[in-house]
């Protein structure tokens, strides 16, 4: 299951757990689990692009007027790439 999800992640450009579940004919909860475990075990890294306005913005008056949404991205690590090469 984890290998299939990792392979799917390496193949696609955008994802939703629904789309991966549909493509792999898996339960969506299991896809969420697989991504969670792949992150936990260091095969992929999740980046959250959310502005951190707690950081010193040098007194920028608009530091709080920034994006409120979080855009999540996944990146396959070297450990993940190594595994993919061996699958």
């Amino acid at each position: 299951m984890l290998k299939e999800v990792l392979k799917e992640i390496s193949r696609i450009r955008v994802y939703s757990t629904t789309s991966i579940a549909n493509n792999l004919n898996m339960d969506e909860e299991l896809v969420k689990e697989a991504i969670f475990q792949l992150i936990r075990l260091g095969y992929i890294v999740e980046d959250e692009t959310r502005p951190n306005c707690d950081t010193k913005c040098g007194g920028c008056a608009y530091s709080s007027i920034c994006s409120i949404s979080t855009i999540k991205t996944l990146r396959i690590t070297d450990k993940g790439k190594l595994l993919l090469n061996n699958i």
């Binding site: 959250e48 007027i65 920034c66 855009i71």
Partner: peptide
């Protein structure tokens, strides 16, 4: 890189967090 646009979206609020967002 596609992620560049994500940092650009953040920059619409303030360029400081926009630049910080390039860390990813």
């Amino acid at each position: 890189h596609g992620k560049t646009f994500i940092s650009m979206i953040v920059g619409f609020g303030c360029n400081v967090p926009g630049i910080m967002a390039t860390r990813t």
